[in-house]
């Protein structure tokens, strides 16, 4: 996964906020995920596909940190979502 990788939600997941938790469920398997903190915000941002760098910039603005500082946590979180088959990672389109 690189800064230019395009991230999209995988189909079949539904999500709802309960207090400060974003609870997600994969309808067919009834597999649940519980996202806290900025994790829930990343899922919201992925309503439409975004690049990794775009996510880092947006979160950086919202949480008042440098995008570069956000990158390690964003990548680690996206890896977890990928492992649980919640997102797809698309190769960057070459200009």
């Amino acid at each position: 996964m690189t800064d230019n990788s395009l991230i999209s939600r995988r189909e079949g997941w539904i999500a709802a906020w309960v207090d400060s938790n974003l609870i997600m469920m994969h309808a067919e398997s009834s597999f649940y995920l519980n996202l806290t903190g900025s994790g829930g915000r990343i899922w919201e941002l992925l309503e439409s596909p975004r690049s990794v760098w775009d996510l880092c910039e947006t979160l950086g603005r919202e949480f008042d940190i440098e995008p570069d500082a956000a990158r390690p946590e964003v990548l680690a979180f996206l890896d977890q979502l990928l492992l649980r088959k919640a997102i797809d990672v698309h190769l960057p389109v070459l200009a």
Partner: peptide, 13 residues
């Protein structure tokens, strides 16, 4: 599934 999930989330909130 979706109805059940939505109802539980609404109720918990």
């Amino acid at each position: 599934h979706n109805q059940l999930f939505g109802h539980i989330a609404m109720l918990a909130s």
